[in-house]
């Protein structure tokens, strides 16, 4: 058994059985993480470089922990303080790193499509840790895995994604991943933050957040990405919070309990209130916990593809 891909660039390229295989493998790693020795020697002959051209807390720590729990050697790179500021190109940077015998690359980049571009020019396996406003595959995998853990399966489940759909790579990867696993997806938020033609991906659009919440089993609340909004798309954060923020009162008015998720970082009081983020409905910290097991599974399964490189 093996994944059908050599890289994890986006969920779009994965088959449903790839996702199932990643989940099964993650189940075992989750069990490893509960032992007193939370580490296995599987990848002690593998070196992985974490290339972060954009800020990150969770994803970077999660990848680094996943690599260390697999006994891989890791090198961390962040663009600030590197030769990138001297004008070195992406390909040159990566080729130089690879010539020091690195087997796998984890990359976050602010340009959409950067990992695909890199995959064409280098031999090593590449894992996309978020590219611009395009995809964030490991986040979508850990989100779907966390829902599966709560509800048993994704098939026929209803998931609403609320917020800045336009600038969110989490939203796009989630839509691909949930659809492939047989869940139904609705996106919700202000019309200016929902891309035109998103229905073509097979999702529903509901501008009324209350209605979108009433429809779903799971709500994935996204952060407003002000850093990617180059022109004003809504008047103020306060107004956004009033019309599109998820609060306790709103949740209590629903007919049934729903699960609340958030990929982090949270802007408390904007897209989600503390009384929701810290409530029993929230599985935000479970998502973070599952992230390590999912990333271990992805790295482990892709490491077998190394033979194709040599």
């Amino acid at each position: 058994m093996s994944l059908s891909v050599k890289h994890l660039l986006g969920i779009k390229e994965l088959q449903q059985q790839d996702i199932e295989q990643i989940f099964q493998t993650a189940d075992n790693f989750k069990q490893v993480l509960q032992r007193s020795i939370r580490k296995v020697p599987a990848l002690r002959d593998t070196t992985i470089v974490n290339l972060f051209f954009e800020n990150s807390t969770r994803t970077r720590i999660s990848f680094e922990l996943a690599e260390k729990r697999l006994s891989a050697d890791t090198v961390n790179f962040s663009s600030s303080g590197s030769s990138v500021s001297k004008g070195e190109t992406l390909i040159d940077t990566v080729k130089n790193i690879l010539s020091m015998k690195v087997d796998m690359i984890v990359m976050r980049h602010s340009a959409s499509g950067a990992p695909w571009f890199l995959a064409k020019h280098v031999d090593a396996s590449i894992i996309n840790a978020g590219d611009g406003t395009n995809e964030h595959p490991t986040q979508a995998l850990l989100d779907a895995y966390s829902i599966r853990e709560q509800l048993g399966s994704l098939k026929g489940k209803r998931v609403t994604i609320i917020g800045d759909i336009m600038h969110s790579r989490v939203a796009l990867s989630n839509i691909f991943c949930l659809s492939k696993l047989g869940a139904e997806v609705t996106v919700s938020g202000p019309p200016t933050l929902i891309p035109k033609h998103i229905q073509d991906l097979g999702v529903r659009v509901e501008y009324d957040v209350k209605k979108a919440l009433e429809w779903c089993d799971v709500a994935n609340v996204l952060r407003i990405q002000l850093e990617r909004q180059h022109k004003p798309l809504f008047s103020t954060l306060r107004e956004y919070a009033i019309y599109y923020g998820v609060n306790k009162q709103m949740l209590e008015s629903l007919q049934r309990d729903i699960i609340i998720m958030h990929p982090g970082p949270i802007n408390r009081g904007v897209e989600i209130n503390s009384d929701v983020a810290d409530s029993k409905h929230s599985i935000i910290l479970n998502q973070v916990e599952n992230g390590v097991a999912i990333r271990m599974a992805v790295i482990y399964l892709l490491s077998g593809k190394r033979d194709l490189v040599d």
Partner: peptide, 22 residues
């Protein structure tokens, strides 16, 4: 006991061994 992650031939085979439950 599953031993998949402790094998010494992980990178000698084309396919990855899928783990079973410990």
């Amino acid at each position: 006991l599953d031993i998949t992650f402790y094998r010494d031939d992980i990178h000698q085979q084309g396919d990855m061994h899928l783990p079973a439950h410990t």
